[in-house]
Design a protein around this nucleic acid. Structure first.
Length: 567
RNA sequence: UGGGGAAUAGUUCAACGGUAGAACAUCGGACUCUGACUCCGAGAAUCUAGGUUCGAAUCCUAGUUCCCCAGCCA
């Protein structure tokens, strides 16, 4: 990751090229002396798994901190114990680390500040800026007004300081049942901004909190916790998504009303949307709970855990995030952009292997029976240091079923009756005979090879139009290959009715692929390219007896476009 | 006449009063023992209407369209 050079001052003025409006603000704050350091934070609520939308936020917050010489806190916004779980807390840390970021000692929890927040709530009561409201949830909803009509003030709004304090303390003491009362800020029931119509600051929740257990029976709302937590941590730039723009006046009101130790500012950017998937925690949770996918780490999921299991390198995600930029316009990024970043990274790093997904048997009639040999295959075409390996060749082979067509159309270069092609790293072969079963399906090809073309080149200089990958029938290992397609059938699925837009073919399981033996020892998490197919990795389900591979992403396939367009 | 935001190629971003540019996608071509990679090229945009200015994507005025907000979720 590029760390910009020079002092912070130089940086601010120096390279006049801005990257995005938030970095511009940070730069300007530093240049003007309004800020001396930069502290950001990534504040997930541990109520679900992190997804690629979070990656945008993580890269932004950690990235800015790193570039400007500050630091970024990982803070759990754990103010609602009814929705949170230790499983999510663990997953979040794992995923942020995997993405490549480190919060060092700066791991915090909003729940660490419960005592201080409580004191500030009493402070607000004493300042006449908060009151205990006895209205029911329903009454509050009715009296909040509408988008176009002012709300009406609660009959409890005028309570004395003493009564408010007494009631609030008894709320804390657990004297009242859930929902009986809330603490509200006393702001303006006629405000055009509904967040300012006496927002709820504390609610009664008799619930077990993952960190504070049963200690509390009241919990602060997001609004009452977030800005103050930022302030306690000395956060300078509190970067969140667009839907919190309306909350900024409340964020500011609270910080201005309380004796907080520092004054952070909130900035908002547009959250990430991606075609053919959905980045809503609610929908993702339903996908898991409803059994539409195999879990949070299903390789079809846009979660970081899913992307990891699928074989997506974290560096590719970081690169993707850098490419899409940061702005305030709602947008939907083309999945093709993510795939480009993944391929770009994997092309450079993944070693090449041969694997036949849908095998078609080939018998080389003029190849001596019972014998075999080894041919040398290079591991990476652009990196000689990756070396080479020996691959078994023999009389019986498998090639890809789709690499043979009995009646080839004009632009089809691959194997066909009477046609000669190259088997990569091995020999030229010519198809002599097509064998079919009773149903008329091609089940075997009888071919001949030219011994003079060993290694893949003809001494007489003749050319072939295609080079096919292959495996030796005697040596190849059977494997299951899981091919993933978009989770949704439409580029912009309807989140409200996501089930209707699910792609029924999002998972293709190929049960009987054949892979070269070297693949049996592929380490988990290690990316490989199956030549001419795509990038793959070993799945967590893979065992020595039963190999399982995930296709991370296919290679670009211009033939597929020609073939699809031709009919 | 509720409040808050946003509008630039198909998509995502730049351009900060001075030549509208990039990446992805698309379409050509070159190269190739991966129909991959790489390389070269092409088409493609300032929401609308006025105004200010020598000059407007940028400033002003009036519209239009889209997004967010009426949880004791975050």
């Amino acid at each position: 990751m590029a760390i910009r050079e020079g002092s912070i001052g130089e940086l601010a003025v120096g390279d006049g090229k801005s990257q995005d409006f938030i970095r511009d603000i940070v730069s300007a704050d530093l240049a003007s002396g309004r800020r001396e350091t930069v502290v950001t934070r990534f504040p997930p609520e541990p109520n679900g798994y992190l997804h690629i939308g979070h990656a945008k936020s993580i890269c932004l917050n950690f990235g800015i901190a790193e570039e400007f010489g500050g630091h970024c806190n990982l803070r759990y916004d754990d103010t609602n114990p009814t929705k949170e779980d230790q499983e999510y807390i663990d997953a979040i840390e794992r995923d942020v680390r995997w993405l490549g970021f480190d919060w060092g000692a700066h791991l915090y929890h909003a729940s660490d500040y419960f005592e201080r927040l409580y004191e500030w709530a009493e402070y607000l009561i004493r300042a006449g800026k908060a009151y205990v409201d006895d209205q029911t949830q329903e009454e509050m909803r009715l009296t909040r007004g509408t988008l176009t009509e002012a709300g009406v003030e609660s009959p409890y709004r005028g309570r004395s300081l003493e009564e408010n304090l007494d009631l609030f303390r008894r709320m804390r003491a657990g004297e009242f049942p859930n929902g009986a009362r809330v603490l509200r800020a006393k702001i303006d029931m006629a405000s055009g901004n509904i967040n300012l119509r006496d927002p709820v600051l504390y609610r009664i929740l008799h619930a077990e909190h993952p960190r504070t257990g049963r200690k509390w029976s009241i919990y602060p709302s997001y609004d009452f916790a977030h800005g103050q937590s930022d302030s306690i941590e000395g956060v300078t730039h509190s970067i969140c998504t667009l839907e919190f723009e309306d909350h900024r006046p409340l964020y500011d009101w609270l910080l201005d009303s309380l004796p907080v130790p520092s004054r952070p500012h909130q900035y908002e950017f547009a959250r990430l949307n991606l075609t053919y998937t959905v980045l809503s925690k609610r929908v993702l949770t339903e996908l898991v709970r409803g059994g539409h996918v195999r879990g949070w780490d299903d390789p079809r999921m846009p979660t970081l855990a899913g992307l990891r299991r699928r074989g997506v390198p974290p560096a590719a995600i970081r690169d993707f995030v850098k490419r899409i930029g940061v702005a305030k316009a709602n947008s939907v990024v083309d999945m093709a952009m993510l795939e480009f970043s993944i391929r770009e990274h994997l092309n450079k790093t993944a070693q090449r292997r041969m694997a036949v997904l849908r095998p078609l048997k080939v018998v080389i009639e003029n190849y001596p029976e019972g014998s075999g040999e080894e041919v040398e295959a290079i591991n990476h075409p652009e990196n000689p240091a990756a070396g080479s390996r020996m691959v078994r060749f023999g009389r019986e082979l498998f090639i890809e079923r789709e690499d043979f067509l009995e009646n080839p159309p004009k632009k089809f270069f691959r194997l066909a009756p009477g046609r000669e092609v190259r088997l990569r790293y091995a020999y030229f072969i010519t198809c002599r005979e097509v064998i079919k079963n009773a149903a008329g399906e091609v089940i075997e090809l009888r071919c001949t090879y030219d011994p003079a073309t060993r290694g893949g080149n003809a001494p007489d200089g003749r050319k072939v139009q295609a080079t096919l990958h292959w495996v030796s029938a005697a040596d190849a290992r059977p494997a299951e290959v899981r091919v993933y397609n978009p989770l949704f059938a439409r580029p912009e699925p309807d989140a409200a009715n996501f089930a209707a837009d699910l792609n029924p073919d999002s998972l293709e399981v190929i049960a009987d692929a054949r892979v070269e033996p070297a693949l049996a020892s592929l380490e988990s998490g290690q990316a490989v390219q199956f030549e001419r197919q795509g990038y793959f990795c070993s799945d967590a389900d893979s065992t020595a007896e039963r190999l399982v591979f995930n296709r991370t992403v296919g290679l670009r396939d211009s033939w597929a476009k020609v073939a699809a367009g031709g009919r």
